[in-house]
């Protein structure tokens, strides 16, 4: 049932939104993991990030995509909570820091065991438009005991112009989506974050809509 809802949502809402109102310049599509377990580590500038990721996948796979999302934000209102859990299929995660590390990520492990593709935003927040905030270490705690799970870096650019945090008006912009190679294994959380930061810096150069210093 939820699977059908999600397919309908992607086919009738997400895809027209992404392909007509927005418009994507996709690079490196071949690196996109089509089956789980896998983690997509994406930068986060807009609610549209998740929509864009959904639109990249064939409808037969979209139910496997599980965005990790802040429980305090998405579960506060019963209607949004129902929609986030049942249609989007989020994995809610507590940002309060009160629960221990294994407890926080148990739902992620469950999903990965189930062969899902987790969408993770290591910045933890959308932050300022078109800027990558400091990456959080949580991603390392998910993968450290899971050698079977590849981390694929993915950079979007331009979505923070289309729909930035705190704005209700969506303005059409073409956006870049650049997918990178699977990251090599990392021995520590700092190493992993360094690899990820490097990957983002490299992917940014392939963006058509990026006009800053090369």
């Amino acid at each position: 049932m939820n699977r059908i809802l999600k397919i309908l949502f992607v086919a009738l809402f997400v895809r027209p939104l992404v392909f007509i109102i927005l418009g994507l310049n996709v690079r490196g599509r071949k690196y996109l993991p089509l089956s789980g377990p896998a983690i997509i580590a994406a930068n986060h500038n807009s609610h549209l990030d998740t929509m864009v990721l959904f639109s990249l996948y064939p409808l037969s796979v979209v139910h496997k995509l599980r965005p990790v999302a802040a429980a305090d934000y998405f579960l506060c209102n019963p209607l949004i909570a129902w929609f986030s859990l049942n249609v989007i299929g989020i994995i809610p995660i507590a940002r309060t820091g009160k629960i221990n590390k294994n407890g926080i990520f148990s739902a992620c492990h469950e999903a990965l065991d189930n062969g899902d593709i987790i969408i993770l935003f290591p910045e933890g927040t959308r932050g300022e438009p078109e800027k990558t905030s400091k990456l959080k270490k949580g991603i390392y705690h998910i993968v450290k005991d899971r050698e079977d799970t590849p981390i694929v870096p993915l950079l979007t650019h331009g979505l923070g112009r289309a729909l930035p945090r705190g704005e209700a008006l969506l303005v059409p912009f073409n956006c870049d989506v650049v997918v990178g190679n699977t990251l090599p294994p990392a021995a520590s959380s700092d190493e992993l974050l360094a690899l990820l930061n490097d990957a983002y810096a490299r992917l940014l150069k392939d963006c058509l809509t990026y006009t800053g210093p090369a």
Partner: peptide, 10 residues
């Protein structure tokens, strides 16, 4: 999308 615009120009 390809020319530089400011966030304030939205």
């Amino acid at each position: 999308s390809i020319v530089p615009t400011r966030q304030a120009d939205r």
